[in-house]
Design a protein around this nucleic acid. Sequence first.
DNA 1: CCCCTTGTTGACTGTTCGGTCAAGAGCGCC
DNA 2: GGCGCTCTTGACCGAACAGTCAACAAGGGG
Lengths: 197, 197
Amino acid sequence: MAGDTRERLVRVARDLIHGSSFAQVSVEDICKEAGVHRGSLYHFFPSKERLGLAVLDANWAMMAALLDEAFGAEAPPLERIDRFVRGFGGMIALMRERTGSTPECPIGGLSAELSAKGDEPRAHATRILDAWAAYFSDAIREAEARGEVDPTVDPHETALRILAYLQGTALLAKAYDRPEIVEHARDGVRALLAPSR
Amino acid sequence: MAGDTRERLVRVARDLIHGSSFAQVSVEDICKEAGVHRGSLYHFFPSKERLGLAVLDANWAMMAALLDEAFGAEAPPLERIDRFVRGFGGMIALMRERTGSTPECPIGGLSAELSAKGDEPRAHATRILDAWAAYFSDAIREAEARGEVDPTVDPHETALRILAYLQGTALLAKAYDRPEIVEHARDGVRALLAPSR
DNA sequence: CCCCTTGTTGACTGTTCGGTCAAGAGCGCC
DNA sequence: GGCGCTCTTGACCGAACAGTCAACAAGGGG
């Protein structure tokens, strides 16, 4: 129980949030689970909202690690996207195992919820979503250069579509409580890379 | 102010929920906005959760009307899907105008949130999502029969993909507060109808 | 005219919420 | 040893929360 209180709070908050939603988790719940008094939480975070943003940052760190691993691989760009999608599905399934219920996308779900709280949280969230989409658009551009994707496909537009599709699969996975939905997302993503008529 | 209290409660609740989320809207807020005392609400609904399910039903009624209008038209199946997507985008934009903030999908967002509350709400939500997807899969089957879609495309699987994609666009639209994202969904949906490799 | 049903009221319960605060513990540095 | 910094405690605040209740209004049918 050394200087890891802050991290523990963020980790616990993340698990609880994924089990339901940010609004449904109370500061009290988080503190109790972390074995800490409320005053301690407010030593590290000025408000519940800022704790939420810290959780979003932690989730993004996790996601970025997954992205770097998949997109840093020596493989054709489309295959790197596949790799990531597989990793994404695995992450959702893992969280389902750890928390007992299927979460939404750790980035998208929180982003949509926190965005409604004001302009600053929204800017924070959209910056992360943009960074995520950039991984896709870079890979798409590279795939076009290699002739593996029709050059009439707009990389940025398509990256957003892939992102949206992944968000939607995660949302449906939560509604159905069936994480496999995300794990089967590969083919849908591939279809999005075909040129639209 | 005759016998329309129940309807008014549901309508007000819907608007408030779309401005944020089910959990963030209090029974008090709803009653105040509807010009009714709390006891009255509990005359019609045994709990806040049941009111949430009633809102979900109302949203589904609205969505089903949109679906019937689009899919009942005399037009090729793919065009009927286009019609619906356009209507869906318009609905989100309209809600944005009326409530001042971009909502998630009125079906998907609520479904994901209520599903976490137990098996009964989950069954309720998934039944609605299944009914929605059926509109798509029927149209896809018909398009295949007419040779407008590759017959190797699995109708049910693809319908779920379209549904997921629409959910995701709505979620991103809320996070970015840019309803146009949904209004541009047509091309993404079309891409999903191409066969996956 | 009374009764019964449907709806409404407004005050009430007990709980939980996010957030504050003064006091102190532990600890390294001068 | 004493100072200052970081962190923790636990009691406390007022507000908001979901839900309850007995009383009462309205009105149509017998």
